[in-house]
Nucleic acid binder design. Structure first.
Length: 419
RNA sequence: GUGGGUGUAGCUCAGUUGGUUAGAGCGUCAGGUUGUGGCCCUGAAGGCCGUGGGUUCGAGUCCCAUCACUCACCCCA
């Protein structure tokens, strides 16, 4: 028996309606915000992610599905969407479209990680990106978009955390201040944090070890080390969120692990879905387009993990969706009736009716059972006598009421079904 | 990559101190006479007990390895 690859999922018919609902809902909300869908390749040149996501990140260093093709070119299954969108924007000249440029996508991504709750090797995300505005109003719009989708899905158990990690001017300065501080506590830090000190000191801020978090408490705060422009940017975002009535907390622990982020970073967190509690994460990336060879075009975006959304929906009982059921099941007895039934079904389908008929050659009783299990609203029963008379019994499966209908008068039947 | 937990029918699980042909419920399929669902009843199909070694007269039960699932670290959506 051949099993699916580790960390992948099958989405079964009874689950798929929820996925479709999430996809429809996010598309609908995006339309209201003026975002257009974009689609792009599942794999890209490996170089794109090295330059875009960042050489030093875990994602690039140890989590990518990289392969070479028959001509020895190196490609990588996308570990995220932002780098690809940025590439596409540059490559297709979308930098000349009216600004701001607002795009969204529904994609699968790949990361070679050890699976656990809320984390798999192939995962699915909804993402949105906005290019062209350095204004904090853009940040507020993006957060509002994410917030709208989350609440439209009925998710209530989340909180928004925002932070600013500074720009190319103040971030390096802050990193040094942090390093200096943690160096003075070097011996007390946990082993992972000792390693993080040089590579990514910001990460220590969000270490769960009690010792480290105690030390981190008195560490220099990002907020205190921002340059004036970054401070003003954050203040502007905060006041806009306030006006829009979006609740948030400024959380210095929000750090993000992708190199391209600048200034605003944010996460929507749900504490009821396990350790991987970030349902939506994003931030501003003002240097990304230029880094990838385009003009100096600022941008901001976010991604939401679809399976994590589903877990959050389940946690607050918002995951109820109706399964697809036929409008009518046409039961038949005998070959001639079966042929007639198949004909009627195809005619009804042409008129938009969801119609099923027997293809198993089963007894009437078995057909009725099947119609019941599939949740058919009506059942039409045809046998030899009905064929002769041109009339048949239509049974309402809910109240068992039966009415006689004229087999030649399809419009009348369709009318009955749509009531 | 590092730890912990789990692995018996499609699903949820029983399976006594290792002892003959491995069980139940649900689900599936077929019946309960003469053309009708939901309840009830009967029957059937369906398991190399995750896989490979080892201990033993004998292993679903014990040991080792491996794989998968799962949770956590790490990282992130």
């Amino acid at each position: 028996m051949i099993q699916k690859p580790r960390g992948t999922i099958d989405i079964l018919p009874k689950e798929v309606t929820l996925w479709q609902y999430i996809e429809q809902t996010s598309r609908k909300v995006c339309k209201k915000f003026g975002f257009s869908e974009i689609r792009f390749p599942t794999f890209e040149s490996t170089e794109l992610f090295h330059r875009g996501v960042g050489d030093t990140t875990d994602v690039v260093q140890k989590e990518m599905y990289t392969f070479t093709d028959r001509e020895d070119r190196s490609f990588t299954l996308r570990p995220e969407g932002t780098a690809s969108v940025a590439r596409s924007v540059i490559e297709n000249g979308l930098v000349s479209e009216p600004m701001p440029l607002k795009l969204y996508y529904l994609i699968n991504c790949f990361r070679y990680e050890k699976p656990q709750a809320g984390r798999s090797r192939e995962f699915y995300q909804f993402g949105a990106e906005m290019f062209g505005s350095e204004n904090a109003g853009a940040d507020a719009e993006m957060i509002s978009l994410a917030s709208s989708i989350i609440s439209e899905l009925g998710i209530k158990n989340v909180s928004l955390h925002i932070n600013s990690i500074g720009c190319s001017v103040c971030r390096p300065r802050y990193r040094e201040a942090l390093k200096d501080y943690f160096r003075s506590h070097y011996d007390e830090l946990c082993d992972t944090c000792k390693g993080r000190l040089e590579t990514n000191p910001l990460r220590i801020l969000d270490c769960k070890s009690p010792v480290c978090s105690a030390i981190a408490k008195d560490a220099p705060k990002t907020i205190d080390n921002l340059c004036d422009d970054c401070k003003a940017h954050l203040a502007s975002l905060e006041s806009r969120l306030g006006v829009m009535g979006i609740e948030y907390t400024v959380d210095p622990h929000i750090v993000r692990g992708l190199d391209y982020y600048t200034r605003t970073v944010f996460e929507f967190i749900c504490n009821e879905i396990g350790a991987q509690s970030t349902i939506c994460g994003g931030g501003r990336y003002d240097g990304l387009i230029k880094e990838l060879g385009g003009p100096a075009l600022p941008g901001i975006g976010f991604g939401m993990g679809i399976t994590r959304l589903i877990m959050a929906m389940q946690a607050c009982g918002a995951d109820k969706t109706e399964t697809e059921r036929p409008d009518i099941y046409i039961a038949s007895l005998g070959e001639a009736a079966a042929v007639k039934g198949a004909f009627l079904a195809s005619e009804l389908r042409r008129s938009g009716v969801a119609a099923e008929c027997d293809v198993m050659g089963r007894s009437l009783k078995a057909q009725m059972k099947y119609a019941d299990k599939k949740g058919a609203r009506f059942t039409l029963m045809i046998g030899d006598s009905e064929l002769e008379a041109g009339k048949a019994q239509l049974k309402n499966m809910e109240d068992s009421a039966q009415t006689e209908i004229d087999l030649a008068d399809l419009p009348e039947l369709i009318k009955l079904l749509s009531e």
